[in-house]
Amino acid sequence: MGIVEFIGDLIGALPGACAQGLIWGIMAIGVYLTFRILDIADLTVDGSFATGGAVCVMCILAGWNLWAAMLAAVLAGIVTGLVTGLLHTLMGIPAILAGILSQLALYSVNLKIMGKANQSVNVNNTDLLISLRWVREMELHNPLIMVSIVLIATIAVLYWFFGTEVGCGIRATGANLNMSRAQGINTSLNKVIGLMISNGLVAFSGAWLAQYQGFADVNMGRGAIVIGLAAVVIGEAIFGRIFINFALKLLSVGFGAVIYYIVVQAVITAGIDANLLKLLSASIVAVFLAVPYWKSRMARAHAVRKAVN
């Protein structure tokens, strides 16, 4: 394949890649809230992402109003966060294990919600908020337009919330547990609230993806945590120095997801075996997470050399 052909194909696939990136951007913001603000790696998301998709599709199939179906998906995600939070705070299970337990349990729950492994909504006879079919139309139901608006609105709400007394308490909980308790902050409660908000967002994102692709699948959230982390680390690496404000940081996570999907699209277009994608994603995240650690070690070694000379 020639370079011109490659660029042509990539540009052709760009709207779809950007739309998926925006949808996963909402999910990645959920991951950012737990991973960066609460300092918890929450693995519930692999399950709650599919829960969001499953609940949304089933509600649409039951003839619900589309926005009501979205709300139901968010509420379902909030419940999954609540479960993980209680496993962690009430039952003393380490956060990472609590997330794994929820994730595993959700596999069964998601199967039960859908009745089988896969449920589709036909865009031909069902009205949907977005669909990949409409990715080139200048209408509100174009996923690029709709999800961009939703993403901005989500960031606005989160920006407001994390500036309130409750939101500041959650940020303090993630920053310093001892200090938070000494200042009268209920750290257990705040962790649970944080996990609920995060998983609510993740399920919200799953619901958008289910409509976008026209189906929900029990495996649709597999590896979601890695994609979320990839978006977070890519966003921080590229925009970290210029986006200091909290809202801009959230936006950079959204951009990170879009960039991630453009890269993925480029890899696919270049004809690289799609089966290797998850290996590639995991490698990218591993390297990006290692960079700050290596940097600090190198800075230390440099400081030591300076000190002894």
Partner: peptide, 8 residues
């Protein structure tokens, strides 16, 4: 009690 009023 921490509420939804501005944190600062």
């Amino acid at each position: 009690l921490r509420t939804l009023k501005p944190g600062i």
